Simulated assay, not measured.
Amino acid sequence: MCVSKDAKVAVVMGSDSDLSVMKSCIRILRDFEIDCEVMVCSAHRTPEKAADFAKNAHIDGVDVIIAAAGKAAHLAGVLAAHTPVPVIGVPIKSSTMDGLDSLLSTVQMPSGIPVATVAIDGAENAALLAVQMLSIAYHDLRHKMLAYKRSLAEKVEKKNEDLQKKLAEI
């Protein structure tokens, strides 16, 4: 059985402005005690760096890549084209089309180059999807994910209890 201390996720952003969205992703990965490499790398402005990173990701111990980009949002696809490592795309909301352009650029990949894609600005779900992917090999993460989901259910039940108390006062 593997332990998650060996698990590694790379969070790659097309721009440093994407950090405001990706903070929650990084926080969740850290909460699950997953080693997290974070960097800025552009599919268009530093294409050689992006290709080199992706080609060597598996050699460098990266298990999953989370790629966030807005507008043309080609980063996830470029990385996926150069790596055997699973890539999760996070389309970032841009001013141009409210993120729809980013979503379509990320999700519409050609056959043979898959990119798992979450919602526009869906950084938290990207981290949680990475945890679920990693839990296949790192079994302690499965237990942590089950505990996380129980905590979500407990929060909903607490909100329902509070709601029922308010309704009783009406």
Rank of each mutant, 00 (worst) to 15 (best):
I170C: 04
R142S: 15
N125S: 11
H139M: 07
V115D: 01
E37I: 13
A76T: 02
A69Y: 01
N56D: 12
S24Y: 02
S94V: 09
L152M: 14
H58G: 11
L75C: 10
A137Y: 10
A81D: 10
A80R: 02
P110C: 07
V11M: 01
E169L: 11
A72E: 14
N56P: 03
I65R: 00
A76G: 08
I170K: 07
H139D: 15
A7C: 05
V40I: 13
H58N: 13
S95A: 04
V131T: 09
Y148E: 14
K155C: 12
D101V: 08
V85S: 03
L29W: 04
A67C: 01
I26N: 08
E48M: 11
A69Q: 00
V131L: 09
L19D: 07
G77F: 00
K49N: 07
S95Y: 03
S151H: 09
D18Q: 03
C25E: 07
L128T: 09
S4D: 04
G77L: 01
C41I: 05
K155G: 14
I92Q: 14
K155E: 15
T96N: 10
G99E: 12
L79F: 05
D6I: 06
Q132W: 03
S111V: 09
L75G: 11
I34W: 04
S15P: 07
E124A: 15
S151G: 06
I113E: 00
V11H: 02
D52K: 15
F53E: 14
K93R: 13
N56C: 08
P91K: 04
P86V: 05
D35Y: 04
I113S: 00
V11F: 01
A126V: 05
G77D: 01
A147S: 13
A116R: 01
S24D: 12
R27T: 12
S24V: 13
T46D: 02
D140E: 07
R142K: 11
P84V: 12
K155Y: 10
H143I: 12
A80V: 02
S24C: 09
D140Q: 05
A57K: 11
G14P: 05
C25T: 10
E161P: 08
R30K: 15
H143G: 13
R150Q: 15
Q132K: 14
V85T: 09
V12R: 01
H143S: 15
S151L: 09
C36F: 00
E124P: 02
R142G: 13
V87I: 05
